[in-house]
């Protein structure tokens, strides 16, 4: 569904993406793993057009997204949803206001219909009766759930997850993983997640790709990654301080 071809990006002379090549399959969960600061967020931001590459292509069903202008992007972005690392909920709005926001901006649905849809999506992510709460009153896990409800409110074809379990305890992380699997199963959506949470990765991924030094150095299913001989990938998935990746 999405093909990333030789994607390069530098910031202030520092090369962050150095020719990323990756294929993302429709209706599957692809997880991009890598150390912090390796450019995972930069990569995902290229997929949804928050950043422009120095060179390379991001093809969505053959259409090069890097060539789109802002008005074309605004049409294409309606096919996407995104859950941000900190959920990025609007502080000034209630949960219902946040989740229903895309519907209010992009559809002619009346308040009652929007609220019904909001309640339905919140129920799908395991939240009931929180519509009138403010984001400041929610726990980290609840924020992620509300963020996911907002990301799927427009029934997008592709949902991007930026570190979906960062900052959560292991039990809550596991419940977010279950939630991702459940919602993906229900909606048959293409999920792309970036994370350094290996447990989450093994649990949800149909395909895993590891980003290191600006390139995808290994990709495959959970079994392939677990059995890889690549010493860099092994060091990362085993969480060893000793190995080819130098710890600063």
């Amino acid at each position: 569904m999405i093909k990333i071809k030789d994607l390069k990006k530098s910031f202030n002379g520092k090369r962050v993406l150095d020719g990323v090549n990756l294929e993302i399959d429709k209706g599957k969960i692809t997880v991009i793993i890598g150390r912090s600061g390796e450019g995972k967020s930069v990569l995902i931001k290229h997929i949804i057009g928050l950043l422009k590459p120095d060179s390379g292509q991001v093809l969505l069903e053959g259409e090069d997204l890097t060539k789109l202008d802002e008005s074309e992007w605004n049409k294409t972005r309606r096919r996407f949803g995104m859950l941000f690392q900190g959920a990025a909920l609007f502080d000034s709005m209630t949960v219902a206001g946040n989740v229903g926001f895309p519907l209010r901006e992009h559809t002619n649905l009346d308040y009652k219909d929007i609220l019904e849809t909001v309640k339905d999506k919140l129920k799908r992510v395991g939240l009931v009766g929180v519509e009138n709460m403010m984001p400041a009153d929610l726990s980290g896990g609840m924020k992620k759930r509300v963020g996911l409800a907002r990301a799927i409110i427009m029934d997008p074809e592709i949902v991007l997850f930026d570190e979906p379990t960062t900052g959560l305890d292991p039990i809550m992380s596991d419940s977010i993983a279950d939630l991702m699997l459940d919602t993906q199963e229900q909606l048959k959506t293409t999920y792309i997640a970036i994370t350094h949470d290996i447990l989450l990765t093994y649990k949800i991924a149909d395909k895993i790709a590891m980003l290191h030094n600006g390139k995808i150095i290994e990709e495959g299913g959970s079994k392939d990654i677990k059995e890889t001989k690549n010493p860099v990938v092994r060091q990362f998935i085993e969480g060893n301080a000793e190995g080819p990746i130098r710890v600063y």
Partner: peptide, 9 residues
């Protein structure tokens, strides 16, 4: 939150 607005078109 500003990036979130952009991703919501």
């Amino acid at each position: 939150q500003i990036d979130a607005l952009t991703t919501m078109a």
